[in-house]
Design a protein around this nucleic acid. Sequence first.
DNA 1: TTTAAAGTCTATAGATATAATAGATTAATG
DNA 2: CATTAATCTATTATATCTATAGACTTTAAA
Lengths: 144, 144
Amino acid sequence: MLSKKCKYAIHALVYLAEKYHEGPVHIQEIAEKKHIPKKFLEAILLELRNAKVLGSKKGKKGGYYLYQKPAEVNLMQIIRLMDGAIALLPCVSLNYYEPCEECRNEKTCGIRDAFSKVRDETLRLLGGSTLDKILKREKLLEGN
Amino acid sequence: MLSKKCKYAIHALVYLAEKYHEGPVHIQEIAEKKHIPKKFLEAILLELRNAKVLGSKKGKKGGYYLYQKPAEVNLMQIIRLMDGAIALLPCVSLNYYEPCEECRNEKTCGIRDAFSKVRDETLRLLGGSTLDKILKREKLLEGN
DNA sequence: TTTAAAGTCTATAGATATAATAGATTAATG
DNA sequence: CATTAATCTATTATATCTATAGACTTTAAA
């Protein structure tokens, strides 16, 4: 399960993708529209900014904006930033690999195979899910 | 990420699948062979027993054994029992559904689609991964 | 140049979940 | 009936997640 932090991040980013051409958006506005605790959102947006996903501007007329194009930001990136590994086991994780304590020799472990496949499929699907696709889908669904 | 509890459960079950025709196996033995804290394993096996995945026998010559055949127990079941939902979002979970607080109307939420697909693929792969397949794979890998 | 608005940063509190342990009880075997 | 091993209840420890508080910094507009 994704953490709340991660869900908040996704929703905030979708909102900012919607406002992509409208300059910086206040934390306050995002928090209200997406029902996210403001102070918590603050920390999340800051993290996304440090990861160069968002840009920010201080002072009056300040706020946050997408630093990358909506077509260049996908769910895989966001989840990795917020929650870490996407794989279900550390021993099959690409970005957060750690050896398993239980299975002595990884080479003969019969469990890893299924989890590698799950990881591959998950990365494929989440990697292909960009902010602009999510936004297009919302527009489509709202149209009905 | 799976919890330790869940990983312990999988390893213990694979071990019991290996000993499928050898009668009850002591907790102590499983704990030692798989390097799992005995008391923690106790709780795990008990839960699997209550879920009718394992059977048990008390007293001398007692222990735990697979109640179902190794081909009938798969990773999907085990994970659901130990960790709950397999889906990454509660609003796309089949067994542990809960509405999302952030998105007001689920019908027009553009985020859910990718996560439904991830869920489907994950269930397919984990559901097909049975204890006997895992065991066969281990024998195969050890053979090389 | 002052002031208000808005992001930045550090610290921490509270809640929840995870992981592990202890001890008393019950059941089966020989 | 004594021994062995599972069962059950309770508790502790640790870690992570979620959220909040408050002081500081930057910017833009009055």
